[in-house]
Design a protein around this nucleic acid. Sequence first.
DNA 1: TTATTAAAGGATAAAAAGGTCCTTTATTAT
DNA 2: ATAATAAAGGACCTTTTTATCCTTTAATAA
Lengths: 155, 155
Amino acid sequence: MLSNASKYAILSTLYLAEHSNEERKISVKEIAENIDIPSPFLAKLFQQLVRGKIISSTKGPHGGFYLSEKNKKKNVLDIIDNIDGLNKLNGCFLGLNECDSTNPCPVHYIVVPFKNNILEKFRDITIMEFAQEISDKGTFLAINNIDPSLDGPAE
Amino acid sequence: MLSNASKYAILSTLYLAEHSNEERKISVKEIAENIDIPSPFLAKLFQQLVRGKIISSTKGPHGGFYLSEKNKKKNVLDIIDNIDGLNKLNGCFLGLNECDSTNPCPVHYIVVPFKNNILEKFRDITIMEFAQEISDKGTFLAINNIDPSLDGPAE
DNA sequence: TTATTAAAGGATAAAAAGGTCCTTTATTAT
DNA sequence: ATAATAAAGGACCTTTTTATCCTTTAATAA
Ligand code: FES
Ligand code: FES
């Protein structure tokens, strides 16, 4: 449903939302270590996200990636769209041509409510709001189960 | 979430459930044409499903694939398990290590109810019951949107 | 028993996804 | 200016997924 690339991009962008700002830019290396993603692969993803104006970057010493005020208002669906395109998320769960109620597959009516829920989450709140929610709820961002004391949800 | 291979296997097995029995075996070719799957690929999948005792086959004239009475009591999850393994379905939506409520990812509480629903569907009813439901509801099995008059849900 | 049919199985190929490396470019500090 | 730093970009590699082809085996019918 989502490629690894999209998952990495989502987690890393949320990491940026929590830990970076225009004054505190973050290198690929730092994020790759914290989220446990191969860093050259993440570098590619970030290049693409910068081109897509989802995140921002500056080169040179103390350079790195960060979210501009504009970036913070993007939503998670923009990330997915930028990396995977939207079809992957919208497509039929069993791979039929179209997913719509005029031509429902055997699991269509199970899948649709879920899709609506997750789309709402991904489309209707900003990256910053999403990141805020994660902090508040104490849910986890790292692919490896990290010790919460090392990198607690509170900023 | 599911590989193409699994999707093909599910659709094709449901096709068998609807159209075959011990006296009326069906060739790979027929199914591949009806469900619109590359036939050598489906042949491989069916070989594997036979080895996994999900479907049955006989060689020679009037041979083909069919569901034995035992096969009909298998469920869709057995198909997925046989082709993809269960991890793919059970894993975290964002790719974190484990999907459980002690370590929830940002979308965990959206994903879990859906997963439970679809697992229930795939685990708790037999292939035959599933196929019956499809006939009753008139949902679609083909990957290409076929004209219902060509291959209607009624046997 | 021989020809025919259809699956089984092995070998391979093409495409996509995932991942790495190296050179170039921009920025900053000295 | 120059050195250091970190992203940008291009080329390339590996693995997995998807797909094809060809030979062998088993079953049946004539
Ligand atoms: S038609 Fe399959 S999920 Fe909607
Ligand atoms: S932890 Fe991510 S879906 Fe459960």
